[in-house]
Design a protein around this nucleic acid. Structure first.
Lengths: 281, 281
DNA sequence: CCCTAAATGGATGTATCTTACATATTAGAC
DNA sequence: GTCTAATATGTAAGATACATCCATTTAGGG
């Protein structure tokens, strides 16, 4: 499936006949309803005839209504299909594997739909202009921060990852207006990170937070990318929420890379420079 | 639909009539073919009658064949729907966000289909029996290793994460038969990790590797969970491959948790013990 | 304003799915 | 082992939904 059907429909509208346009607009407006409708019902709902509906399907490149319906249902299903699962003691390894991956996908998609595009944009702008980017995190969020640091390092941006509250405090006091701190917390309530962020803000540096909404940390950051995922405090649930956090970092990284073309050369060079560390193959 | 259709079919088999079992087994064997088949063709291919096929659909909770077909097509499509995208300079932030998340999902699903279930099972068995679990990794894989260490820590298993080749060497020499090392490398060719793994194997400890297939590292581990994802050496591609690695660690963790019931109590206790570090809300 | 060509819908045919019912099979009781 | 009753399965008819044909309508050009 190379192009997405809905986009294709939208692009094809100008070439369609008048009554076919009605079909196109109806499908774009409420694509999900089509899946359960038959030609007769669909056409009468749209106020056109069955042949017109069929003609529209053919104009879109399908053999008929049936094929369009299946195609549409496939595309719409994708996002809703993945679920968060609990693991049960008698699950086989195979089930377990399926469930963990499904949950991971589900949470990533879930987060994608939650992200505030405006804040994301502002965060990327701030990071792209930053003289220095520091990642603060504790516990389970520390690997996420470390990942962020690693990625920004590749973009040739001075960066560090700090999981020690004392060092965070020292770092916070040494920052200035042009610096950015990315504070990551899967709880949003950790006392130490809230304290660190307060100190950072006194320095004038900008703080981007990645944490659940309605938390003490979310309240005090300049830009809060709030993310609500299933809690991890039950053993029976996969610990996939940090995947979603990592994905957000990835978006930030790619956004910054786009705004800083000089980073691109550097990235290519890294591949070369790493060669000496590797075995020839 | 609450549970995944194919899994549900599998679980329902014992309750089905003999000829309906034939249907179930056929669908499980080749689910994709159903999408394009009509009742007549499908039933004759399966060697049963159309009504039996319909009865099977109803037994699965659908109103008929049509509904099952659409449902099946949705579920099968979901996996193939996500794609790996390249980022272009003129992409909007929104496009970028969509692409990064899509790519992430695509790679996670891709990895899921690659995982060797036998090796996975053996790896989980080995980890569950381990006296001690050490994670070795460098560079971009270090956050993944750190994540693994964090997760196993929660399972009350003595664990550490080592990204320093010297310490790895010292660690490797101190391990014994009952210990397990998890070596993570997104290249599979890093000289230092290959050397460390060789040292570990001399100690008699077991090495589980997570890396691309056909690499020097894959050749020397006891259990190689090989994973092939799109390369990350281009700036225009999201850096999502480590998400897939983290997901694999997650599967290992959940598998071990399942085999070590004593870990469960501990996990619940952690939530309590962390309370003192948090702000009341 | 008429003519032509295109667009649209009604009616019909056909493919596909579903149901009713008859037959076969199986399980249990004697 | 055999009969009976219940269950399972398939045949064939019926209903439904989809696609096609062709007549009617509409729009545009002369």
């Amino acid at each position: 499936m190379s192009t997405k059907l809905l986009r294709k429909i939208k692009n094809t509208i100008p070439e369609l006949r008048k009554s076919e346009k009605i079909v196109a607009e109806y499908i774009l407006k409420d694509p999900k309803s089509i899946i359960t409708l038959k030609t007769a019902d669909a056409s009468s709902l749209m106020g056109i005839s069955e042949p017109t509906l069929i003609r529209f399907c053919k104009a879109m490149g399908f053999t008929g209504y049936q094929e369009l319906k299946i195609n549409l249902s496939q595309q719409l299903a994708a996002d809703d299909y993945f679920e968060i699962y609990e693991i049960y003691p008698d699950d086989s390894i195979h089930d377990l594997c399926e469930k963990v991956f499904d949950t991971a996908v589900s949470e990533i998609l879930n987060v994608r739909s939650q992200i505030d595009q405006d804040i994301l944009e502002q965060a990327i702008q701030a990071l792209a202009k930053a003289r220095r980017v520091e990642f603060y995190a504790f516990g389970g969020s520390a690997p996420v921060a470390m990942d962020g640091q690693h990625k920004f390092f590749r973009l040739k941006i001075p960066t560090s990852c700090i999981s020690d509250p004392h060092i965070q405090f020292m770092s916070a006091n040494s920052l200035s207006k042009n610096d950015v701190v990315v504070a990551i917390s899967q709880s949003g309530t950790t006392t130490a990170i809230v304290d660190s962020v307060k100190t950072v803000r006194e320095s004038g540096a900008k703080v981007i937070g990645i944490m659940p909404g309605n938390t003490p940390l979310a309240d005090i950051c300049d830009l809060s990318l709030t993310i609500n995922v299933g809690s991890n405090d039950r053993l029976t649930m996969p610990l996939t929420s940090r995947l979603a956090y990592t994905a957000v970092i990835d978006v930030l990284t790619m956004g910054v890379a786009q705004l800083r073309p000089e980073a691109q050369d550097h990235l290519y060079n890294i591949a070369d420079s790493q060669r000496s560390l590797k075995i020839d193959s």
